[in-house]
């Protein structure tokens, strides 16, 4: 698919072109919604709202960013609006987290090679899902886009309209939080 050409046709109202864009992006948008909201119904809502917005606003797409960045930005914003309505309880990650304290007090146990830490372990899975959901939206979106969707730092910064430095800072804090949760889990198991 020559995306630039397809987008051009879609801007002229070509339904076949819209159909091609839906086929190209629907699965990724659905997965993005699922990863941010966690519920299938919410992911479907985000998918539909995203493409309705694309149809309504495709005239405003000026090609300065890639179509991928543009549609991902719409999808992420749609997901965030839905997330805010749910008013989840976030854990407070301080603005200046003291990494020194963490690395010096907790890091000495190396659980990275522990065979029980895998995604078949329901307890680990539950713990990680809960820890991801504790991240406030600014951390969660960066973590999902960069570490789960595996977008680049540059792409993530463009989609979220924040600086690359900001992406790195948020990513660092999100990873730190999740790692600490696994560390706690592992330490408790050792004590038992």
């Amino acid at each position: 698919m020559n995306e630039v050409e397809v987008v051009k046709r879609a801007k002229q109202g070509d339904q076949q072109a819209f159909s091609e864009l839906v086929n190209a992006y629907s699965e990724r948008i659905y997965n993005l919604g699922l990863r941010i909201l966690r519920k299938k119904e919410d992911a479907e809502d985000i998918l539909q709202e995203t493409f309705l917005t694309v149809i309504q606003k495709i005239d405003m797409f000026d090609g300065r960013s890639s179509f991928f960045t543009w549609i991902y930005r719409i999808a992420t914003n749609t997901a965030l609006m839905k997330l805010r309505k749910k008013k989840p309880q976030y854990i407070d990650l301080p603005d200046n987290p003291d990494f020194q304290e963490s690395i010096e007090s907790k890091v000495f146990i190396d659980w990275s090679q522990d065979a029980s830490l895998n995604v078949q372990n329901a307890e680990v899975k539950k713990l990680l899902y809960e820890a991801i959901d504790e991240l406030s939206e600014i951390y969660k979106t960066v973590f999902v886009l960069r570490d789960i969707e595996q977008l680049s730092i540059k792409e993530t910064s463009k989609i979220l309209n924040i600086t690359e430095e900001n992406v790195k800072i948020r990513l660092r804090r999100a990873r730190q939080h999740l790692r600490d949760k696994l560390s706690e889990y592992f330490s408790e198991r050792v004590v038992k």
């Binding site: 890091v107 190396d110 990275s112 830490l117 895998n118 990680l128 899902y129 973590f143 570490d147 790692r179």
Partner: peptide
């Protein structure tokens, strides 16, 4: 150890998604 455990954390999150 810090690096390995962060890396493992990210891998686990990616695998379960």
């Amino acid at each position: 150890v810090y690096f390995d455990t962060v890396k493992k954390t990210v891998t686990l999150c990616r695998d379960m998604e």
